[in-house]
């Protein structure tokens, strides 16, 4: 179905391609290149010193670790939610399905404030956790929860269509061969879902590294402990240090771009393999 042969019959390649490139250049590429040019104001040693100072390294660690764990949690529960939504029937399913998109729509600051209010030591949930010595708000756990909220739709919405298109026959064949349900899942279903899962995880992860609005409220912003990279960029900006801010931004941009590129290549290869089969 995704067979690719030369498609010269259809019109509009020049127009659509031209517009796409033009639009992307104006809206995305030229503005992002400003980051690069501004960073050039720093000499190489200055740049290196900025992006590898202890505070910045600690912030990378916080950002990457929390985004990674949030991505993992979303991977498991996002798949579960997608599974439940696709395969089972229960009352209120449509509503639940719509709810999954809400983190896209809610202003991140509002999400941050609401989550902080819930998980602070005097909040709805926080007040039950505090006596147990579990600190959620103002700790890396809080950041992770905010990032789970932000990233959840990415995983669910990537896995859902794949799960839907999964052919029943493959599963049935496995059952006929006597495989147990759990085994079918591990051996037949999971491998089919893998590309979608990886994509969803990576999107949630990439989004998590950059998230700012929701995290600053819940993180506590302690240097070396709960200070995230975007906050450091903000701090540098407010200290009138533009070049320093863009230097850190550049590092983040490159990481995001490479990660997305790898996903897209992976996806492309997997698609080709499916076609070849």
């Amino acid at each position: 179905m995704k067979g690719s042969k030369p498609r010269n019959v259809l019109p509009g390649f020049g127009l659509s391609m031209g517009f796409t490139i033009f639009y992307l250049s104006v809206i995305v590429l030229i503005p992002l290149s400003a980051v690069l040019f501004k960073t050039f104001e720093l000499s190489w040693p200055e740049f290196w010193k900025t992006v590898t100072s202890a505070r910045v390294l600690a912030a990378y660690r916080v950002s990457f670790l929390t985004a990674f764990f949030a991505g993992l949690v979303n991977l498991v529960f996002g798949m579960l939610i997608a599974w439940v939504l696709v395969r089972y029937r229960f009352p209120g399913k449509k509503l639940i399905d719509s709810l999954v998109d809400l983190p896209f729509a809610l202003p991140t600051a509002v999400a941050g404030i609401a989550l902080t209010a819930i998980y602070a030591p005097n909040g709805w949930i926080g007040s039950y956790l505090a006596p147990l010595g579990i600190k959620v708000a103002y700790s890396p756990i809080g950041i992770t929860i905010a990032l789970i909220f932000i990233g959840l739709p990415f995983v669910v919405r990537t896995v859902q269509p794949v799960l839907q298109d999964l052919e029943k026959e493959t599963e049935e064949a496995a059952v006929m061969l006597g495989a147990y349900r759990l085994r079918t899942f591990w051996k037949v279903i999971l491998p089919e879902l893998m590309p979608a899962l990886v994509t969803g995880f990576a999107m949630a992860f990439a989004r998590g590294i950059g998230e700012y609005g929701s995290v600053v409220f819940i993180s506590g912003n302690m240097p070396l402990k709960t200070e995230i990279t975007p906050l450091l960029i903000m701090t540098k900006l407010e200290q009138y240090d533009y070049a320093g801010a863009t230097a850190i931004a550049l590092v983040m941009l490159i990481v995001s771009f490479l990660m997305l590129l790898v996903i897209n290549l992976l996806q492309w290869q997997m698609n080709r393999r499916t076609i070849a089969r």
Binding site: A117, P121, G123, Y138, M222, M234
Partner: peptide, 20 residues
């Protein structure tokens, strides 16, 4: 200092509303 907000108002909220 357990929480280092980025602005004065943020700190007040943390102290008053969150009870930290």
């Amino acid at each position: 200092v357990p929480v280092l907000d980025s602005g004065a108002r943020g700190s007040t909220t943390t102290f008053v509303e969150r009870g930290i």
